[in-house]
């Protein structure tokens, strides 16, 4: 029985430290990435992975109690609303005309125009990094 308790403690420590690591890494990525569209990825790491690991670790520490139920409710709610609000932010940015830096002008609506598509396509086929 004592082995199980020790295993639970160690597992919860690992989960909490991993969650805090992911939260910190996501925040560092939010500061250092060059573009809004790149920052979305870092924010999602911090928002989903770090939060879930932290709440799992804290629920393991709490055991079977009301606190674990509250943690599960908060975790489920954040699990649903985090990607939703990230998607809403990305959608609003796209609608307002913000475009990624590397592919400026490469939207679907403008590629339907024939002569601009011809102006873009051979260049992009030759040099994918541009």
């Amino acid at each position: 029985m004592s082995i199980l308790v020790t295993l639970q403690e160690v597992l919860s420590w690992i989960l909490i430290l991993a969650g805090a690591f992911f939260v910190l890494v996501g925040a560092i990525g939010t500061v250092r990435f060059p573009d809004f569209w790149a920052r979305l990825h870092a924010a999602s790491v911090s928002d989903s992975a770090g939060m879930i690991l932290l709440f799992l670790g804290m629920a393991l520490q709490a055991g079977f109690s009301l606190v674990a139920v509250k943690l599960a409710i908060i975790g489920a709610f954040l699990f649903l609303t985090g990607p939703t609000s990230t998607h809403a932010t990305a959608n609003a940015a796209l609608v307002s005309g913000l475009r990624p830096k590397e592919a400026e002008g490469l939207t679907g609506a403008e590629l339907r125009n024939k002569d601009t598509a011809q102006a873009i396509e051979p260049d992009g086929a030759k040099d994918p990094g541009a």
Binding site: V23, G26, F36, A43, M51, F55, L71, I74, T89, S96
Partner: peptide, 19 residues
């Protein structure tokens, strides 16, 4: 939109920090 993203992320961090 950077600011909106940061506000959202800050709120999630606050929830985790309160826990």
């Amino acid at each position: 939109y950077d600011r909106v993203l940061a506000v959202n992320l800050f709120g999630t961090h606050t929830v985790v920090f309160i826990g």
